[in-house]
Amino acid sequence: MNSGENRSTTVQSIAINLLTRVLEVRELMLIVIIIIGGTAMSITTPIFFSSSNFKAILLGLSVEAIIAAGMTILLVSGGLDMSVGSTMALSGIISCIAIKFGIPVFFSVSLGILSGTLVGFINGIIIAHWLINPFIVTLGMLSIVRGLVLILANGVTIINLPESFTILGQGKLFGLQFPIILMFFVIISGDILLRRSRFFRQNYYIGSNEKAAILTGIKVKKVKIINYMLTSTLAGIAGILMAARMASASVNIGTGLELKVITASVIGGASLSGGEGSIAGAFLGALLMGTLINSMNILGIDVYWQNVITGIILITAVILDNVMKRRRESASQ
């Protein structure tokens, strides 16, 4: 009787320990939530649990997740880029216009991606050298770049693109579309770099205390500029993938994307005040949202509700984060 009681209390305490651990490691928590949600959906409807549906989810979030890798690095360093959606459209439009001018696909695509890198370079220089708030600079850039896109394309969508270009978005390897494969490559290599490499680790120092980072001899300006260039380059690549997948370059592509990307990063553990976050977390954040929206579509929930629910998840994630942090702090006092 007594020993049985003991056993149940140990089981209980192990369960509580496990639960706190899951709640503390953001990546674990997201995996648990996604698995629970996925299982529930699989039981509810047979359409959900199929490889074609899973591929559709991954393809849908591939563009977001690729950009989120860069955005997470920026958030860790205390920065932010609001212009990624516009940059994505710019890269798509420039490469498609180049193709229409008869420039070979390889060079056209390179030109598109480079246009993204250039946007990031300008963002980085203004933010790092003139010490202007990144939100303001990239918000301005969002508008400038979107304007340029409209001017360049004269407001119309470019269609009739050659197969040598559209294959970039539609081609498959091991049964997976290229954007999915590229996404996994970016997420996995990015996560390892941000966790382990000296260069990217510097971002945690900068985001945690920029003044101290300067005093310890970290080349803060250089790191920041490279961060913005990296994020915009990834946005440029995402723009090419999108245009190729759609076989068209639309002037409205990527509108509002920056918010989705930041949401994914923040759900994944990044904080707008810098110093924390992981790329794996950002991917899981994007996956959680992608799965949820897919489920809502399958269940026939009105599209308009999707925005409401995305917002609720974002705020819940941040509240939970805060509560956990405060509990840990009071426990250690």
């Binding site: 490499s197 000296r198 260069f199 680790r201 510097q202 945690y204 120092y205 945690s208 205390n209 003044k211 101290a212 980072a213 300067i214 005093l215 310890t216 001899g217 970290i218 110093g275 924390e276």
Partner: peptide, 27 residues
């Protein structure tokens, strides 16, 4: 402007010389 308060003692103490803690040929 001295310490990285949210980071660990370990991360703080190596801050000015990260370059000396990398593997030989990689970063």
């Amino acid at each position: 402007d001295g310490l990285f308060l949210d980071m660990t003692i370990s991360e703080n103490s190596i801050a000015p010389q990260l370059i000396n803690f990398t593997h030989r040929r990689t970063d």
